[in-house]
Amino acid sequence: MLFYFIALLVTLVDQGTKIAVRMYMEVGEVMRLGDSGMQLQHYENSGMAGSMFQGNARLFGVIAVLFIAGMLYYRHKGEIRGFWMQAGAGFMVGGALGNAIDRFVYARVTDFLVFPSGQGILNLADVAINIGVVMIIIGMLIRAYQRYREKRLRNALPKG
C-alpha cells in the first residue's frame, strides 16, 4: 500500500502545483521566495531535462508509461520490497506519472522551481523522481549490507 499511496500523493500534489502555476503565473514570470535565493518561474518544456529535444513531449510520455509499466512489473515480481524500495519506487512512479500527464494533455511539462544552485528549472515530479532514486539506492545498500552480514554469520558458524 505504501507504494500506491506515495505514487498517488506525488501525482496529485505535482498536478495541483502545476495547475496553480498555470493559473496564477504567466509563462516566463518570476517570483522570488524571500531571501533564500529560490524562486518560481513559469516555464513550459516540450522536451526533456535541460530543455533538450524540444517538441518531443509525447515521445517522452510514452517512455514514462513504459518506465511505470516496468516498475509495476518488477514490483509484482517481488523485486521491489521493503520500506526504502517501496517508497522510492512510489516517488519515482508518481513523478513519472505526473510528468506523463502533462506530456499527453498539454504536449509539454510545466516547470517552475528554480534552486539557487542554478541546476535548471524543475517541478515537483522531477524532485520526487530524484528523491525516489536516492531512496532506492539506500534500499539497495541496506539489502547488500544485510546479505553481507548473513553470509558472514553463515561462514562463522561451525560446520558439522
Rank of each mutant, 00 (worst) to 15 (best):
L12N: 06
A20R: 01
S36C: 13
D111L: 12
L9R: 00
Q15H: 04
S51T: 12
G55F: 12
S117D: 14
R108K: 14
M85L: 15
A7K: 01
L9C: 03
R108P: 02
D14N: 13
F67K: 03
G78Q: 07
G28I: 13
V27S: 14
M71Q: 02
Y106R: 10
M1C: 07
T11C: 06
A69I: 10
G61Y: 00
M71T: 05
G34E: 07
A64F: 06
V21Y: 01
A49E: 06
M71I: 14
D111A: 10
A125I: 07
M71K: 01
R147Q: 13
G37N: 04
F67T: 10
V62R: 03
H76S: 14
L66G: 06
L122H: 14
Y148W: 07
G88M: 08
A69M: 10
I137W: 11
A57R: 00
G55L: 13
I19D: 12
Y106H: 08
M92T: 10
G118Q: 01
G55M: 13
M38I: 11
F53H: 08
Q54V: 05
F5Q: 10
L157H: 09
I131Q: 00
Y74Q: 04
A64Y: 02
L153M: 11
G61N: 00
K18I: 12
S117W: 15
R152A: 14
L66W: 02
Y106Q: 06
R149V: 15
M25H: 10
L59S: 10
D111G: 07
A144T: 03
G37K: 06
A7L: 04
L66S: 02
Y74N: 06
G88C: 08
G28P: 03
L66Q: 02
I137C: 12
A125P: 04
G88A: 11
S46L: 00
T110D: 06
S117E: 13
I19P: 02
G28M: 11
D35I: 13
G16A: 15
W84H: 08
Q119L: 12
V62W: 08
R152G: 14
A156W: 05
G139Y: 05
K151L: 12
T17K: 05
V62L: 12
N155E: 15
G118A: 04
G50R: 02
G61H: 00
V27C: 11
N155A: 15
N45P: 00
A156H: 04
E79C: 10
I68S: 05
A156P: 02
G88L: 11
T110F: 08
Q54Y: 04
V10Y: 09
G34H: 09
V133G: 03
G61I: 00
Y74V: 07
M25R: 09
E44G: 12
R32T: 14
Q119D: 06
P158E: 05
D14R: 12
M140F: 07
F91Q: 02
Y73V: 14
N56V: 06
G37D: 05
V109L: 07
I63R: 00
I6G: 02
Y148G: 04
Q54C: 05
F112E: 00
D111T: 09
D111Q: 08
I137K: 05
Q54M: 12
